[in-house]
Design a protein around this nucleic acid. Structure first.
Lengths: 169, 169
DNA sequence: ATGAATGCAAAGGTTTTGCACCCCC
DNA sequence: GGGGGTGCAAAACCTTTGCATTCAT
């Protein structure tokens, strides 16, 4: 029975398209940590060595990653960090502008990426599950026009295209 | 602490915008049941009174609904139907062209609507959580253009705008 | 009669929460 | 020292699955 979109985990091997380029980091690690520091101070929150560990793991990730993948990375250097701590830090780091949510898979798992300024949306390969990015100003503008016309104030959007890689086989 | 998009269930009362119009049913109940019948026969599957109950409940729903809401509706007339049966029927009914998935909320709950031919995307009100629809050919075309240009074959897409209703308060 | 459909309960996977303890400011 | 931060385990949540039973054809 066919399932909905990407609820079956596709195998990486099903797709021979080259992986997306790792994004060129627009900010240095130092800048990110300073931004975090400013945010924490502004909110009366505290630095903690574990929070720094988590941020460093995030900065070392390439592309888009799940919490499970992030957890593995963190456990490389700090095996004792609990999953709950990572989950509890996610909203904080999003608020701080360090992290952003990419998309949710149909099975409910969230994917994240390091926050950056250039907005983009995503194409998920239905063969291999990898996530690619696209930029399209026209769509952004149309979106804004529609929302205004319908008397809403845009807060955010998620635009995910599911498509199969033509390089297949 | 602010959470991601619609992970907090907003209260209906937070938004005074009129509800979306119930969609004018493009097919009669009879037509839908015939379509289902054709699909089931083609797949060697069976009719069952419970499956018909589920379809009738779907057709009686207005707008967009979660499995929980659908289950409640079904239980009005057939209280004994188990949740597993409803979940197991969903992929079948999607395949049959009776049902389609609208979106997943950030907390992982799926929303559905009756299948129809006119494609549209969705605006979720960040005040009240209600789901509205928009149609925009320009966006569809751009999307197709980008996907082709990147050498993918489009399978599907999900485009959800999160926006607050200006009629608020 | 044969295989699909169902109910029940248990299991699954991801994320959240309660609580006692720890540590940053 | 006080309030945020953390670990652990349990709970929450939606959904899926195993198994014995029932039903459609």
């Amino acid at each position: 029975m066919m399932r909905t979109l990407n609820s079956d985990k596709p195998k990486r091997s099903a797709c021979s398209r080259p992986s997306p380029e790792p994004k060129k980091s627009s900010s240095t690690k130092k800048e990110v940590l300073e931004k975090l520091d400013r945010y924490l101070k502004s909110q009366g929150l505290k630095q903690s060595s574990i929070r720094i560990d988590i941020v460093e793991a995030i900065l070392s990730m390439r592309g888009h990653f799940s919490v499970a993948e992030l957890t593995d990375k963190i456990h490389n250097s700090s095996p004792q960090v609990g999953a709950a701590t990572i989950y509890r830090n996610i909203p904080t780091l999003i608020e701080a502008g360090v992290l952003q949510e990419t998309l949710k898979t149909d099975n409910g798992q969230a994917y994240y990426e390091t926050a950056d300024d250039d907005h983009h949306d995503h194409i998920v390969c239905t063969d291999c599950g990898r996530i690619f990015e696209f930029h399209e100003k026209t769509i952004e503008k149309e979106q804004e026009r529609i929302t205004k016309q319908m008397h809403f104030e845009t807060q955010a959007h998620r635009h995910v295209i599911y498509a199969s890689c033509s390089y297949k086989k």
